[in-house]
């Protein structure tokens, strides 16, 4: 896949999008569909936050360039051309991440990778909002995953064993 043109520095107004954009970069090779929808979420949310100041407009315009380039590159992928298929793809991926981390948790295996999986699952559930309102189940999973990631991270940082 051709490399995307880099984005300008992230405007401070868009700080809340930095994790979703980083997740997009991390998935460019691993799962381009997930990477595409993470950017779409950042684009849509960024436009709601600030599409007026020149710095933000410039950033959003470059992000849109990336999205258009990706859509062209992935044009034969149904998960890109049909959002209903894309939604199922992102949801399955988020659930897989969640279940991996949850299994590790229940087996008492606490490590950085499982913390990241919990957190990434929560970010991808944010991404699902581009397709419409979240289900109650997704909202519960997001809350639980974010709480678990923070809790286990703090335990490991303080040398404590998570309960």
């Amino acid at each position: 896949m051709a490399a995307l043109a880099p984005l300008p520095p992230l405007p401070p107004q868009f700080k809340s999008l930095q994790h979703h954009l980083r997740t997009a970069q991390e998935h460019d090779k691993r799962d381009p569909v997930v990477a595409y929808y993470c950017r779409l979420y950042a684009m849509q949310t960024g436009m709601k936050i600030d599409s007026k100041t020149p710095e933000c407009r410039k950033f959003l315009s470059k992000l849109m360039d990336q999205l258009e380039a990706l859509k062209k590159q992935l044009g034969d992928n149904e998960a890109i051309t049909q959002e209903i298929v894309g939604c199922a793809h992102v949801e399955n991926y988020a659930l897989k991440m969640f279940l991996y981390a949850d299994n590790e948790d229940r087996a008492g295996r606490f490590h950085k990778n499982m913390i990241k999986s919990f957190y990434t699952a929560s970010l991808l559930i944010d991404v699902l909002t581009v397709f419409g309102e979240l289900t109650d189940e997704n909202m519960k999973h997001r809350k639980y995953a974010r709480w678990k990631a923070t809790y286990i991270h703090n335990c490991l940082k303080n040398g404590e064993t998570p309960q």
Binding site: L40, Q44, M47, S51, K52, S61, M64, K71
Partner: peptide, 26 residues
């Protein structure tokens, strides 16, 4: 300032239109 606001608004519309096209909503 009126014309600056007009340019900003037009650019905003352009972004909205590109987003709608991207999502096949036009």
């Amino acid at each position: 300032t009126g014309s600056v606001a007009t340019v900003a608004s037009a650019e905003q519309d352009e972004l909205s239109q590109r987003l709608a096209r991207l999502r096949d909503q036009v």
